[in-house]
Design a protein around this nucleic acid. Structure first.
Lengths: 232, 232
DNA sequence: ACTCGCACTTGAACATGTTCAAAGACTGTC
DNA sequence: GACAGTCTTTGAACATGTTCAAGTGCGAGT
């Protein structure tokens, strides 16, 4: 169905095959127009015209308008990783690391809030390849989960042995929740989302610490069993 | 922008004003086609043709194709209320009541799983009037929250005084979470969602009970303060 | 130099959600 | 019963995402 002729370059652009430049041109033009006019207001015709190519050409590189969104995700993910580096290198307390990475994620997304919000709906559709849970998104998802794995491995906090392997994914899930809130956040500068992060991180921190207590073991196990059951 | 000439009848259809029958005809035809073919595969032209009216006529009653979804919500909400009645009349333990109402909600939605899933994305868009958080949805939302209020008022369980007023909304939020999981649930008959409900209700139950303990008061308050801050 | 194959490009044609000016139908008024 | 006003209905026209058959041009093989 979708053309997959040109595999996306993983990091920089070292070997530009023939059409690779066109691909990048279209992608960047689209991103610019999305930012300038919003997603819905940016027509494929406008993207093509602005990029100086034919409409069909855009479809040669991107299966649909939605696929341009995926490009945005991928880009954001890489930026998120980069933006998290300083905190991860500096902090060693679990809470500080987690807060840092969550804030970094929102930092990266903030300039796009107005238009990102309008198209995050596409991600909510289960059948869409753009869903963060879909097989097609497994690449970026794994990368994101790995980032939260790093939050954990670099931290000094002790974590319950049974909880530990599940935790990165759970933290990523919490991050998805933060983004869901952020998308709906109408407060100026999305300050509410910042408050959410600052409020919720200590709770998670405390919860993780408590999970090691003998008295709470049954509860911890109960929760973990449930999660294991629920995920595919 | 949108025509609001004919206010929707709240419960039955006692006084059918002139065009009311047409409205119902179009609505029911749309629901049937959604169920038969799915949301995306059902064109406005098909709805109009099948209902025996002109395309523009459908737009006279429903501002957009998406607005037909809202009709579905409203309908489901009423059914959910009705389906919850038996449990609420029978049970008096908090956990049993909550589980009953959650299961009832999924019961009502189950026949529509295949097509409901594909359009729940519209609800995820913050700017959409279809968002469960939007002002336009406040009617159904209030009704739904009231339903969870009833879960609480009819129960024998003691609840922390500070938590009590917030709890119905929190339970509704949890219900939204269950639906989000349900939408993505690919297990046959969505049995995983049932497991989610059965697994999560005891946890909520225990949490609510624990909230009254003096030792946990600070945490309870902290959580409640955060929630108060976060909601508009 | 020629030509063959394939990556790339084109733009008209198509499908479908949405709009709108005009026409039709009903209700109350005189 | 004619008239005015409003509610309802119509269908053609429009906007935009998407498809596709037909080109275009570059590089390899001869």
């Amino acid at each position: 169905m979708t053309e997959q002729t040109a595999p996306p370059t993983s990091a920089g652009e070292p070997t530009t095959t023939r059409g690779e430049q066109t691909r990048l041109l279209i992608r960047d033009t689209a991103m610019r127009l999305f930012r300038e006019r919003g997603y819905a207001q940016t027509t494929m015709r406008a993207i093509a015209q602005e990029a100086g190519v034919a409409v069909g050409n855009a479809y040669y590189y991107f299966g649909s308008k939605d696929h341009l969104i995926q490009e945005f995700y991928a880009q954001s993910q890489v930026e998120h990783h980069a933006a998290s580096r300083p905190v991860l290198d500096r902090e060693d307390a679990f809470g500080a690391r987690l807060a840092g990475v969550l804030h970094a994620g929102i930092d990266v997304l903030t300039p796009s809030h107005s238009f990102a919000a309008t198209f995050f709906k596409t991600a909510a559709e289960p059948t869409s390849p753009l869903s963060p849970f879909s097989a097609e998104s497994s690449g970026p998802r794994e990368a994101a989960i790995a980032l939260f794995g790093e939050v954990l491995t670099g931290s000094t906090t002790k974590v319950d042995a049974e909880l530990r392997p599940q935790l990165p994914e759970l933290l990523w899930l919490a991050y998805m929740g933060v983004i869901l809130y952020w998308v709906h956040d109408r407060s100026p500068g999305q300050t509410k989302t910042r408050q959410l992060i600052d409020g919720v991180v200590p709770l998670i921190d405390r919860l993780v610490a408590l999970s090691r207590l003998r008295v709470l073991r049954p509860v911890t196990r109960q929760v973990l069993d449930l999660i294991r059951t629920l995920r595919h």
